[in-house]
C-alpha cells in the first residue's frame, strides 16, 4: 500500500498541515497576530510535558495547553495591555516552563528535538489520520465562517452592523489555531509552526488581488515548501522541519523581489 512508504506519509502530512495553515495564516497576517501564533505554538511544549507526566495522549495535552494559551491571550488582547510585551513574556515563559517540566519526567526517554523541530519522517498512519482530520476541521471552519471572519477583520463596526459578533469570530480563529498547532507539532515542531502560518501567506501577498486568491496561493506555496523541503532534506541530509521553513523563506524572498519588480503588483503593495 502506498501509505506504507514513510516518504509518502511525510509528504501527505506536510500537505495536510500546509492546507490548513494557509487560510488561517492569512488571518494571522491580516490581523497582525504573528506573536499570537508563536505563543500558542510555544505553549505546546508545556502540553507535551503535561501529557507525559499525566500519561495522557500528547495530542490531547497539546490541544489543551494551546487552547488555554490562545484563549488567555485573545481575552487579554481586548483589554488594552501592551500586547507585544505580554505575548513575548507568555510565549517564552510557556516554552521555558515546558522545557523545565519535560526534564522532570524521569524514566521516560523523550526525544525533545522531535517536539521542537518536528519529526515528519516518523509520521505513522495514525498520525496521518489525525493530521488530516484536524486539517479538514480547520478548513471546514474557515470555509463556513469565511465572510464573517473577513468582515470582522476589516472593521468590527461594519461586522456588528451586519449582525456578526467579532468576538465569536475571534474565538473560531483561536480554536483553529490550537488545532493547527496540535497537528503541525509532528511536522515542523513548536519552534517553526508560526513560520508555516506566516511565511506562505506573506509570500502570496504580492500576487493577490483578493483575500481568496491570497489564501489559495498561500496553500500552494505552503504545500510546495513542505513537499519540496522534504525532497531537499533527503538529498542534502539536513533536518526536515528547518529545511521546509528555509525553502518557504526562500520563496518569500523571491516573491518580495518579484513584487518589487512588477509594476502592476507595486500598485497593490504601495501606500
Amino acid at each position: 500500500m502506498i501509505l506504507d512508504d514513510f516518504q509518502v506519509r511525510a509528504a501527505l502530512a506536510g500537505i495536510g498541515v500546509a492546507l490548513a495553515a494557509a487560510p488561517l495564516g492569512c488571518f494571522v497576517v491580516w490581523r497582525r497576530m504573528a506573536y499570537f501564533g508563536d505563543a500558542t505554538a510555544h505553549a505546546a511544549v508545556l502540553g507535551v510535558a503535561l501529557s507525559l507526566v499525566l500519561s495522557t495522549s500528547i495530542l490531547a495535552g497539546v490541544l489543551t495547553t494551546s487552547l488555554v494559551m490562545a484563549t488567555v491571550v485573545s481575552s487579554l488582547s481586548g483589554r488594552g495591555y501592551a500586547m507585544d510585551t505580554l505575548l513575548g513574556v507568555m510565549a517564552h515563559s510557556a516554552l521555558a516552563l515546558g522545557l523545565v517540566a519535560v526534564s522532570f519526567v524521569s524514566g521516560v526517554r523523550i526525544d525533545l528535538m522531535a517536539y521542537l523541530f518536528g519529526d515528519i519522517l516518523a509520521v505513522g498512519k495514525w498520525d496521518l489520520a489525525i493530521i488530516w482530520a484536524g486539517a479538514l476541521l480547520v478548513l471546514g471552519l474557515m470555509h463556513w465562517r469565511w465572510s464573517s471572519l473577513l468582515t470582522a477583520t476589516l472593521n468590527t463596526d461594519l461586522a456588528h452592523a451586519s449582525g456578526i459578533a467579532p468576538g465569536r469570530e475571534q474565538l473560531i480563529l483561536t480554536l483553529s489555531l490550537a488545532v493547527v498547532v496540535a497537528v503541525a507539532l509532528k511536522v515542523v515542531g513548536v519552534l517553526l509552526i508560526a513560520a508555516l502560518l506566516i511565511i506562505p501567506a506573506a509570500t502570496a501577498r504580492p500576487f493577490s488581488r483578493t483575500p481568496e486568491s491570497m489564501a489559495l496561493l498561500a496553500a500552494l506555496f505552503g504545500a510546495g515548501s513542505t513537499t519540496g523541503g522534504l525532497q531537499a532534506a533527503f538529498w542534502l541530509d539536513t533536518p526536515t522541519g528547518p529545511t521546509i521553513v528555509s525553502l518557504a523563506a526562500l520563496l518569500f524572498l523571491l516573491s518580495s523581489l518579484a513584487g518589487r519588480l512588477t509594476p502592476s503588483v507595486m500598485k497593490t503593495t504601495r501606500q
Binding site: W30, S147, L150, T151, L154, D157, L158, S162, P211, M214
Partner: peptide, 28 residues
Amino acid sequence: MLGYVPQRFHLDPTLPMTVSRFMGLPRR
C-alpha cells in the same frame, strides 16, 4: 435591516481587497 457607513477606516496593507469583493462582504 441596517446599512452602516462608518468614517473612513484603516485597511491593513497585508489584506488585498478589490472594491467589488468588498461590496460583497459579508453577503455576496
